[in-house]
């Protein structure tokens, strides 16, 4: 399905189409939305059914739920401090949503919703609005001091302040581009090498033997993508924590 003629269609996998027949078409419910719902359902199921036994010695699902909870709790407390606990639900939701999106995207026929900049930028914008609101709520007018470091010569203000503002505004952009670019790059590479498998296999007698090479690369790539899927969710969550730290401890 990938090799139409001799062209490699690496970007077709990111195209949106509506699902659920006429109902989905009427409300614009795409496969991206479908996988968001699936991811949300799986997260809720993991936490609810995983923690249902609430056993002293946890089973497999409970271990997974507890490990996820403890991992983010450690991260939030280590980065933001004890008072950062109130942001735990936000960071945890963000992390699990991105992690499940990245991981679900690795399954055959699945759609990676984190490969769309519209979604990653919306998430990053939520983080940006939150950190700005938190620092204004906690520090009021002192928030403006963030854009002019103490001790800098006052005549440098016309240069420093615009640069700091642009730097501050670039946070949601870099946050969203990092996640989006990683997911797109990984899936494009998988698709390209998968197409090579099909194209080389058609090379007559030696085809099946030659096509083992891109297949081997793809096996390694899938393993690598699992790592990237986790790492990018982790990076997104920890950068959120670092920004929250900046917002809570302004200077």
């Amino acid at each position: 399905m990938a090799a139409e003629g001799k062209a490699i269609d690496a970007l077709g996998q990111f195209e949106l189409s509506t699902v659920l027949g006429p109902i989905g078409a009427a409300v614009g419910f795409t496969q991206s939305n479908l996988f968001m719902v699936i991811a949300g359902g799986l997260i809720v199921a993991l936490m609810v059914y995983g923690m249902r036994p609430a056993a002293m010695v946890p089973g497999r699902l409970q271990s997974l739920a507890e490990a996820a909870y403890g991992f983010i709790d450690d991260m939030v407390v280590a980065q933001v401090g004890e008072e950062g606990r109130r942001f735990f639900p936000f960071v945890f939701t963000l992390f699990m949503f991105i992690l499940f999106g990245n991981m679900l995207g690795l399954f055959p026929y699945a759609f990676t919703y984190t490969s769309h900049i519209s979604l990653t930028f919306t998430l990053a914008l939520m983080v940006f609005v939150l950190i700005t609101a938190v620092s204004i709520a906690l520090h009021g007018k002192k928030f403006l001091g963030y854009f002019f470091p103490e001790g800098a010569p006052i005549w440098l203000a016309p240069i420093i302040i615009p640069v700091e503002i642009v730097s501050y505004l670039s946070r949601p952009i870099s946050l969203s581009i990092r996640l989006f670019a990683n997911m797109v790059a990984g899936h494009v590479m998988l698709k390209v090498f998968a197409t090579f498998v099909v194209m080389l296999a058609g090379l007559g007698a030696i085809g099946p033997f030659v096509s083992v090479m891109p297949l081997a690369i793809n096996v390694a790539l899938v393993g690598f993508e699992v790592l990237v899927a986790f790492l990018q969710a982790y990076v997104f969550a920890i950068l959120t924590c670092i920004y929250l730290h900046d917002a809570v401890h302004l200077h």
Partner: peptide, 9 residues
């Protein structure tokens, strides 16, 4: 990514 995003902004 940091450089590119600052330039975009």
């Amino acid at each position: 990514v940091e450089v590119v995003s600052a330039l975009i902004v």
